[in-house]
Structure formats: structure tokens, C-alpha cells
Computed example of a mutant assay.
Amino acid sequence: MSHLSTSLFKHQAVKPAFWFVVLGAALWGVDPLFRIILLDSLTSTQIALLEHIILVLFMAPVMWKHRQELRKLRLRHLGALLFISWGGSALATIMFTKGLETGDLNAVLLLQKLQPLFAILMARWLLKESLPKSFGTLFIVAIVGTYLLTFGFKLPFTNLNDIIQVGSLMSIGAALLWGGSTVMGRYLLGAVNYETVTSLRFILALPLLLALVIGERQVWTLPGESGALALVGLNLLLQALLPGLLSLLLYYKGLSAIKASYATLAELSFPMVGVMINWIAFQQVVTVTQVAGFLMIWATLLIISRQQERNAQPLAAA
């Protein structure tokens, strides 16, 4: 009876877990709104450092509460921890911010859609995950929907020089690191809980970011007026807590119960939030093609969620 109850619980948890990842990734959509404002006063590295200081202050007590989890980690987990903390948390954050600062915003956002490609390849290689027969078709539908959300029917690039530029290269690097972090995070969640993974992601990134800021030797140009300084502080706090802390807690909670290859498609909820942010903050009218893209992505997410629910039913019955 206990075994049956556990199986039924796992079955019921599959669908919510998928949407936890969707919600966590959707919160990333508000990230550029805060980050672009902060670039008026700080460098990309300085923003990342201050953001992680705030995150560590919040997550250090959580890590202390779950400190017994550290005993479950083995030497083989060290590489995954360094990848998600140094790569996915520190370097990817700097590269994405630098991309927003030096590149075309549309190009930076579109190139982030390479994350699923990197994650799928790494999931098949490292986690030996099998993919459903319809995964390729669903992936193409989601990418087309993302393209329509970002560009409509217009061509994003007029020549090769628009792609090969600093901002675009930074964005590709961030996509590679974040896509890989999805897989490495899923690997770590096989050993410890999501609170521990989230805490270590921020805590281990802090020394590297501090060293990068010191090596950068850039002057801190915070505004002198108290009102402007308070605005910078508020933006930094919201940036750290919403698309930073809350999004990752939801993300890793969901990721602990689903495959990394499913999660990386769930992360495509990001462009939908980006469209709403543009509409609300910058009064950009949503076009018919953007609505079509929105519906294509949500249809993909719904189908994948239904597939997971059906796949879980035989396990629950057993």
C-alpha cells in the first residue's frame, strides 16, 4: 500500500514539476528590464557581483539549514558544481549582461534560444536521456514560435557581420553555459535537494566574481544623489530576488522531477514574458505574428506536459 501511494504521488507531481520550470524560466523574462537600467551606473561584472552578494545573504541560512546534504556530495559532483556556479551563474550572467550592453537586443534574445540545443546534446551525452518520438517536431514548432515572437516575418540579420559581433558571441556563450547548467543541475539533483543546489550555485560563484571585479580595475560610478542611488539599489534588489533567487528555486524544484530535455523546452516561456514586458514597459503593441508565436510555444508546452502525464500513468498503475 505504501509503495502504491508513493507511485501515485510521483504521478501527480510530474505535471506540477513541469510548470514549476515554466514559471521559473518565465521570471527570467523580467531580467533585462532591471539589468539594462543598472548598466547606466555599473559594469557587467560589478552588477553580477552585487547581485550574488545579495543572493548569498539570502541563501546562506538556507545552506546552513541543509548542511547535512553536503555529506551526500562526492568528488564526481565537483565538476558539475563548478560548471553551474562559475559557468552558469557567474560567467553566463556577465556575458549576457555584456551582450545587452554591446549587441543588438533582438539578436541577443534570439541567440538565447540556442540553450535547448546545447542542453539536449549534453543531456543525451551525460545523462543518457531518451527523447520521445515527437520531440524533434515539438522542438521545431517551439523554435518557430520563438522566432515569430522576436522578429515576426522579418529577417533578423542582413549579413554575416550582424551575427559575428561581440554582443552576439557573448550571448552564444551565455546560452551554452546556461544550457549546460540545466543538465548539470539535473545531475546534482540526483544527489541533493534543490535548495542545496541553488545555495551552492550562488555561494561558489562569489569568490570568482570578486576576483574578476578586482582584476577588472573599473571605477565604481554609482550616482551621488540619494534618490538615484536608492533607485539603483531597488533595481539591484529586485533583479537579485525575482529573476535571480525566486526563479531558480522554482526552476530547480521542478527540475528535480523531470528530464533536462523537457526542462529546456519549458524554458521557452521566457520570450512570452519578454513580449509582455515590452508591451507594458515600453508600450510596444503586440502583433498578430507575436500572438501566433505565443500560441505555438504554449501549445508545445501543453503537449509535452500531457505526454509526461501519460508516461507517468503506467508507473502509477504498477
Rank of each mutant, 00 (worst) to 15 (best):
I172T: 04
E267R: 00
G145S: 05
L249D: 05
S247W: 06
A175I: 09
F34G: 06
H77M: 04
R71F: 12
L75A: 14
S181N: 05
T97Y: 06
G103M: 04
H3L: 13
L229A: 10
L114K: 02
G87Y: 08
V108S: 04
L189F: 02
Q283R: 11
A240P: 05
G244P: 08
A142T: 07
I277M: 15
E225K: 04
V219M: 12
V219R: 12
G185D: 07
I172E: 08
M59P: 07
I304P: 03
S7G: 00
I164N: 01
S85F: 02
F151L: 10
Q290H: 05
I47A: 07
G173D: 05
V288F: 14
H11M: 11
L27D: 09
V291F: 12
I172Q: 05
V14I: 13
A260D: 08
P207T: 07
G293Y: 08
M276Q: 03
A123H: 10
G103P: 04
R76Y: 07
F139T: 02
T221L: 14
L138E: 09
G136E: 02
L249A: 03
L111C: 03
V141Y: 06
G180H: 10
A318V: 10
L176S: 10
L82K: 01
P32G: 11
L109V: 14
R76V: 12
Y187R: 13
S199R: 04
F282V: 04
W64D: 00
F83K: 03
T182A: 08
S85V: 08
L234G: 04
L188E: 07
V144H: 05
M95K: 00
K72Y: 11
T264Q: 13
L206Y: 10
A119T: 08
R310F: 14
L126G: 06
T6G: 03
L265S: 09
F139L: 13
S5W: 12
L155Q: 14
V232A: 11
Y194H: 14
P16K: 06
L236K: 02
Y194I: 00
K15F: 10
K128C: 10
T198E: 11
S226Y: 02
F270R: 00
F153I: 12
L231M: 12
L238S: 09
S130W: 02
F58P: 01
L222S: 13
A316K: 11
V183G: 13
L148C: 10
G29N: 01
W298A: 13
P243A: 09
A175M: 08
I297G: 10
R310S: 13
G152I: 06
A228W: 02
A211L: 15
A312F: 09
V219F: 10
V285N: 06
T146H: 01
T287R: 11
F139R: 01
L105R: 12
R217E: 14
I143L: 15
E69S: 15
I280D: 04
K253I: 02
P116A: 09
V56H: 11
M184C: 15
V30W: 00
V232K: 12
I280A: 14
F135H: 06
A17K: 05
N106L: 13
D104M: 03
F18T: 00
F20M: 15
F83H: 12
N159F: 03
L70Q: 07
I203L: 15
Q165I: 01
I303L: 15
L4W: 05
A266M: 12
W125V: 05
I203D: 06
S168R: 07
